[in-house]
Amino acid sequence: MKRIVQSKIVNIAISFVIAILLSSYVLSTKSATSTTNNPNNFTTLIPEKKASLKVALNLQFDNDKYVVIGAPATVQVDIEGSGALVSAAQSRNDIQASADLRSLKPGKHIVTVALRGVNASLTSTVNPQKVSVTIAEKTATTLPVSVSYDKSEVAKGYTASDPTATPKSVTISGPKTNIDAVATIAAHMSLPSGTKSSLTQTVKLVPLDKNGREVEVNLGRQNVDATITISPEDSKKVALAASIKNGDSKNYQVTFDPKNVTVYGSSDILNAMNSINVTVDVADIKDKGSVQLKLPQIDGIVRYDTDTVTATVSQINSSSNNSSASTSGTSESLTSESSESTTSSSSSNDTEASSSQQGE
């Protein structure tokens, strides 16, 4: 009997140990399954990524009757989640931001920005979440574009025409008070320093009041193409004068082809200029020859109508000059002797006539 009781106790103990082992196994299996199915644990296995996107803000309202001013053109959308989903959102650009104003009346309102197109597995926030807008009855008008530039950026000796815009005018819309306040649609060109040639730029439009402050209105277009024509300031036709190098200017005769050139440049410089001195080197010219010469660079002169001129050089023979001078001297001497002979003959005749009268 005692053995039977001991046997039962042993069996119960063994069964109890087996039950504990089975229970531990089941609990460990559930824990593993729970860990596998837990989204938080799943995300820890995939690298996360953050990104900020600039998204256009779409305003929903009756644009045939109203205009809306004050709202930003874009909002910032921050997204966070798995790298693959964030990269996909960046490349596809499916996210949209909008504000529904269709139930609102004219006046100033603060509205909430809503997002669409964001993957449900991503965390997203928009900044700003609320925007201030003003709804007003629509008024529109068309105004000319006024293009300006900094005159100091034009190179010395050059002049600029009045810049033009394409298109020449732009339509603006908004509240009547704002429309009435607009004095000009400004477009300012930014020229490189020392600009010497014409150019065209895409220029931003800015509506300004009479005091030069920006007015909040809607523009039919944001930019125009502005063109400015730049050319030499003035022109004048002047003669060329030779400046002999390596020789005596008295011994050379120089003619130019062309004889005159048209000079472009500053009006002050041109008004004081009657001719242009061109250096002619006669070192290699023995009797007669022609050389191609570049016109000199002069401060205030932008350009010439020709880059080079032809100088024809003729040497004047110095012995010929001496011979001519000698001949001239001999002629003068002969003239003098002839005059003296005539004077002597006349004097002799007068003496004979006087003696004849005394004899009578």
Results as ranks from 00 to 15, higher is better:
residue 286 K to Q: 13
residue 286 K to S: 15
residue 278 V to N: 08
residue 273 M to Y: 08
residue 295 L to F: 10
residue 285 I to V: 11
residue 302 V to D: 00
residue 303 R to W: 05
residue 275 S to D: 14
residue 293 L to T: 14
residue 277 N to V: 02
residue 294 K to V: 09
residue 303 R to P: 00
residue 287 D to S: 12
residue 302 V to S: 03
residue 298 I to A: 04
residue 292 Q to R: 10
residue 288 K to W: 09
residue 298 I to V: 11
residue 285 I to Q: 06
residue 294 K to L: 07
residue 283 A to W: 15
residue 299 D to W: 00
residue 298 I to Q: 07
residue 273 M to I: 14
residue 304 Y to G: 05
residue 279 T to H: 13
residue 281 D to S: 11
residue 298 I to K: 02
residue 292 Q to N: 09
residue 287 D to I: 08
residue 284 D to T: 12
residue 284 D to H: 11
residue 276 I to G: 02
residue 273 M to A: 13
residue 284 D to V: 08
residue 305 D to G: 12
residue 279 T to D: 12
residue 286 K to R: 12
residue 280 V to Q: 03
residue 301 I to N: 06
residue 295 L to A: 11
residue 285 I to E: 03
residue 296 P to E: 02
residue 292 Q to I: 10
residue 289 G to E: 07
residue 287 D to L: 08
residue 290 S to R: 02
residue 293 L to Q: 04
residue 294 K to I: 07
residue 285 I to G: 06
residue 305 D to Q: 10
residue 303 R to M: 08
residue 283 A to T: 12
residue 281 D to V: 13
residue 285 I to H: 05
residue 273 M to K: 12
residue 276 I to Q: 04
residue 303 R to G: 03
residue 273 M to G: 09
residue 302 V to C: 03
residue 289 G to D: 10
residue 280 V to W: 01
residue 303 R to H: 05
residue 289 G to V: 15
residue 291 V to W: 00
residue 292 Q to E: 10
residue 290 S to H: 03
residue 300 G to I: 03
residue 300 G to E: 01
residue 299 D to E: 12
residue 293 L to R: 03
residue 299 D to A: 15
residue 283 A to S: 15
residue 296 P to T: 02
residue 275 S to N: 14
residue 299 D to Q: 11
residue 278 V to M: 08
residue 303 R to L: 04
residue 289 G to I: 15
residue 299 D to N: 10
residue 302 V to K: 00
residue 302 V to E: 00
residue 305 D to R: 09
residue 301 I to P: 01
residue 288 K to D: 07
residue 277 N to A: 13
residue 281 D to G: 12
residue 304 Y to D: 05
residue 288 K to A: 07
residue 290 S to G: 11
residue 287 D to N: 09
residue 275 S to C: 12
residue 283 A to K: 15
residue 297 Q to A: 10
residue 273 M to F: 13
residue 288 K to M: 05
residue 300 G to A: 10
residue 292 Q to D: 10
residue 298 I to R: 04
residue 299 D to C: 03
residue 282 V to S: 00
residue 299 D to P: 00
residue 275 S to F: 06
residue 290 S to K: 04
residue 283 A to G: 06
residue 284 D to S: 09
residue 298 I to N: 01
residue 298 I to D: 06
residue 284 D to P: 04
residue 305 D to A: 13
residue 305 D to E: 09
